[in-house]
Structure formats: C-alpha cells, structure tokens
Amino acid sequence: MAETAECFVCDGTEPNYRAQRCEKHDVCVQCGTHRSKITEIPWGHREGFRCQPCDRANKAAARDGYDSSEHDDTEERDRIKCPTCGYEYQPEMEDYRGDGETHEDDCPNCDSPMMVTTHYTVEWSTRKAGVQ
C-alpha cells in the first residue's frame, strides 16, 4: 500500500477544512507565524488557520476601508448590509423579527455593532372569480 503525505502543502493536494499540515507548514495563512509562536486561539481557515492579530487587522482594515457616506444603500434590502464595512450577508433565522422591530447585532466581517430593523412587504395577486 502506498504511503500518503499528511500535509496538503507537501503533497500538493487541494486544501480543505479537514486537510492537515506538517510541522513545517503549520503556519498562519496570512502572516506565516508558526503555530508554536502564537499565544491566542487561532481561527480555522480552509487552508489551515489565521492568527488573532491577522484577524483583528483584517477587521480593522474592513472598517477603515469603507466610506458609508459614499455607499448609503443600507435601507430596505433583501440582505443585511453592515453600515461600517459594507459587508452583505443573508439573514439567519434569529434575524427575522416582527415588522418594524429593531435589534442590535454585530457584523460577522468587522465585529462592529449595528442596529438591524426587520421590514416585511405584502404583495397581492388577483384573478376573476370562477376561473382557475
């Protein structure tokens, strides 16, 4: 039986969340810091992990790189759009509230708090009575 490599980098195979890296390649996908050198729990990534400092830097860059005054289109959309970084995402079940209800939520991209208001629209269809 042929022996297979345990590292997708060494092996040259497609990375995924279950793929493993060898000791040499067990580094942050963004900055290259080795896992043995990090002090905080890293975030999982399709190609390994991302360290907390890189994650914080990415979130700060998302917040700083978006000018909401130039993109004021956060009202009455079919998806939730963060007014701080512009990230759009599909609402989860817990985001559906009563019409006009507002709740606070944190953006999954930049962690900024935002107020989310639920809006419902009613539409009508008609046809002649007795016609199917």
Rank of each mutant, 00 (worst) to 15 (best):
A2M: 08
T4K: 07
T4N: 04
A5R: 08
A5M: 06
E6M: 09
E6N: 11
C7V: 01
C7N: 02
F8D: 04
F8C: 07
D11A: 13
P15L: 01
N16Q: 02
N16A: 04
N16T: 01
Y17P: 03
Y17V: 05
Y17H: 12
A19T: 03
Q20V: 06
E23F: 12
H25M: 09
D26T: 12
D26E: 14
D26V: 08
V27P: 00
C28Y: 00
Q30C: 12
Q30P: 07
Q30N: 15
C31L: 03
G32Q: 03
G32K: 03
T33N: 04
T33C: 05
H34E: 05
R35E: 00
I38K: 08
I38H: 04
I38Y: 01
E40Q: 15
P42Y: 06
G44V: 05
G44F: 08
H45R: 09
R46D: 15
G48E: 01
R50W: 01
Q52A: 06
Q52I: 02
P53F: 02
D55M: 13
D55N: 14
R56H: 10
A57M: 10
A57D: 01
N58M: 12
K59C: 03
A60N: 08
A60Q: 14
A62V: 03
R63V: 01
R63N: 00
D64L: 10
Y66H: 07
Y66T: 07
D67F: 13
E70A: 14
E70Y: 09
E70I: 08
E70M: 13
H71I: 01
H71A: 04
D72R: 07
D73Y: 06
T74M: 13
E76F: 11
R77L: 15
D78W: 09
D78T: 12
D78S: 12
E88T: 12
Y89W: 15
P91K: 05
E92Y: 08
E94C: 10
E94W: 13
G98H: 02
G98Y: 02
D99P: 10
D99S: 12
E101L: 11
E101S: 11
T102C: 00
H103I: 14
H103V: 13
D106R: 11
P108W: 07
C110N: 01
D111E: 10
S112N: 09
P113K: 15
M115A: 14
Y120T: 10
W124M: 14
K128S: 07
K128N: 07
A129F: 09
G130V: 06
V131F: 08
